[in-house]
Amino acid sequence: MAFEAPVETAKGSVIEVVLNGLQLGGQTALPFHWFEGEFSNPPRVGFEVWDVAPTDWAKPLAHVYSGVWSEPVAWARMVVEELGAEAVYLKLMSTDPNGLSRSIAEAAGVAEMVADAIDVPLAVVGPGAPEVDAEVVQAVAPRLEGRRVLLGPASEENYRAIGAAALGYGHGVIASSPIDINLAKQLNVLLTRLGLEENSLVMDPTTGALGYGLEYSYSVFERTRLAALFQNDQKMQLPIVAAVGEETWKAKESRAGDDEMPGMGVAETRGILWEAVTGLALSLAGADLLILRHPRSAELLRATFADLGAGGAGEGVAQ
């Protein structure tokens, strides 16, 4: 008698958020458990683009982008046309109050140009300071009206301002919470109470890189997804976005040269693997959209997803 693998069927499903034709979420099974339910939308790979040239990105990244990174439009085109980005995550770092602190209107203009130049989903986020993020989003939202982008990061401090702008101009919101499943849920509740539909929200429960809190993020992602599928907790059924590139390329292991970390492998590939491993772990935990930086780690992840039988085929696993 042949062995029959036990099948655990979920009570709930992840909400499908559709942006510019790209579907996020929508599954009724745990990540890559295509044998237990619907898992037709594998984690999507988006790339991070800034509106100013970064001054502190690691060498392997500079090799790839230094030719385009002073031109946000060219940079965005490159990640879409050459690197196959399924989404662009445009971070308006020029408005960083601790950095250039440039005019928000100007940055919003850049966002509009980038939106005009690409045909994949776009997320536009502020520099990561709640007050400035709110101002940035309020400036960007009207200029991108009709395009339905993701705006954020919306946190407990600024979710009203960001949510209101998204509501008013028909955009989605990235709900960002500090590695805490209850705070994540609370923010989702607050945003839906503000009037946003669940299918215009994605959640970012904060990414910790390998060696820098990955296990915490893994646990929060996993529990969020378990709550969504097996407890049918409707406030936890949003697709999850993970800012993998940003976090992994901060790690000193990704940045240190060959001499600085002997025994830790070649600098060029170390960071790429750091990014790929973090991305893979979080994909297994429930991430639906990975925001990456390096094209090689994107390739590695896509190949792995294919091997895991994303899309329902599963041949890769059989082999």
Binding site: Q138, P142, R160, G163, A164, A165, L167, G168, L194, G195
Partner: peptide
């Protein structure tokens, strides 16, 4: 809409 945002937020 610009002013309406202030009511929502």
């Amino acid at each position: 809409r610009a002013r309406g945002i202030e009511f929502i937020e």
